[in-house]
Design a protein around this nucleic acid. Structure first.
Lengths: 185, 185
DNA sequence: TCCTCTTGTTTGGGTACCCAAACGGGTTGA
DNA sequence: TCAACCCGTTTGGGTACCCAAACAAGAGGA
């Protein structure tokens, strides 16, 4: 096994952040420009301009007539996948391991783009099962069993699939509730 | 929080592998030279020569009169820490999440040098508790409680400490037994 | 002795990031 | 209208990796 699998990932650490930044800007303010991305990431406009040229050539980022950035289908898929992984790992580090939120966030952010889809799926199932050990419908059981088969056989069709995304969203909204509660105190 | 905490880690991905390669070569064959490291890592002697120059300047790697490489105390500490993290994550991915061994190994290898010491400690405790939920001496309980206090307060003295290393070694030897069993079949 | 192999180093080239600085195009308020 | 400002891009410089290739030095067999 080559230890340099490292740098032949679908996207680099920096690309991961460029993509998720665009996605988040689109959600938050409806548009994303080079400067917005630069500000969000804390790097210069020049760096973003160059990086995005590469991502545009790879067909992950698109641009309209007004220099407004967007994500292609593939770009969206990747950004969503990374975001999901970040949420899953942060939740695991914070909830299961009991790490402080900021450290959980930091570590999740470092590894989000490196772990395989399969690993993320397995983690989602793991968390899910521990969170809702009580309410188990035969429906969810069947889904989980199907996913576990995938893991055993080492395959995953598309990440994140519907089920995984549902789990991730529940984890995220639960985590947001908690930090809101904390603010209220 | 700066997303580029990434590249200001104690050691880079490549440095991590250079150090652990030296350590492993010393264990396996009693010595380590530039060529040995190059062969083990699958890169050229030239690359290793240059990389090690940096690690020597940083005081992590030492060299005797016969061009035999070694690790300084600091170098050993770092290499041992990385190795411990790799073992812990691999064990978690494989045993708790049920991922295939090769994928677990690959993912563990990608993230071993990125996760914080505190995260690794928390993971060790987590695994430990799940593995030996039955035999709990009040001694171990006290240790675990002390470590959990560290985690809550976000500090860790030296990684890996005695307790963590014990857990890691047990996980590793258990994993080796299992793969031996498999070979015997 | 001489030829050959191995070893470690150096050098020039390439990739992927980052920055600062300069430049040209647009918008806008005075 | 024009100076001030924000935009995006380009350019030159820097770091950290990698490679291939050329080199010098030592070790050993014929």
């Amino acid at each position: 096994m080559d230890w340099r699998e490292f740098d032949q990932n679908p996207v680099s650490h920096s690309a991961a952040h460029h993509l998720t930044a665009i996605q988040q800007l689109l959600e938050d303010q409806g548009y994303a420009r080079v400067s917005d991305v630069a500000r969000k990431l804390g790097i210069t406009r020049g760096s973003v301009s160059v990086s995005l040229k590469g991502l545009r050539q790879r067909g992950l980022v698109v641009e309209d007539q007004h220099k407004h950035l967007g994500l292609s289908d593939e770009g969206q898929r990747i950004a969503r996948g990374i975001h999901t992984k970040r949420v899953l790992f942060k939740a695991f580090l914070e909830k299961s391991l009991g790490l402080p939120a900021d450290l959980a966030e930091m570590d999740a952010c470092k590894i989000e783009h490196l772990v395989s889809d399969l690993t993320a799926e397995a983690l989602a199932i793991y968390i899910d099962r521990r969170e809702d050990a009580s309410d188990s419908s035969s429906d969810r059981d069947r889904q989980v069993n199907a996913l576990e088969d995938s893991i055993r056989e080492g395959r995953v069709e598309a990440f994140p699939g519907k089920e995984i995304e549902t789990i991730s969203e529940r984890l995220q909204s639960r985590s947001e509730e908690q930090s809101k509660d904390k603010d209220d105190e």
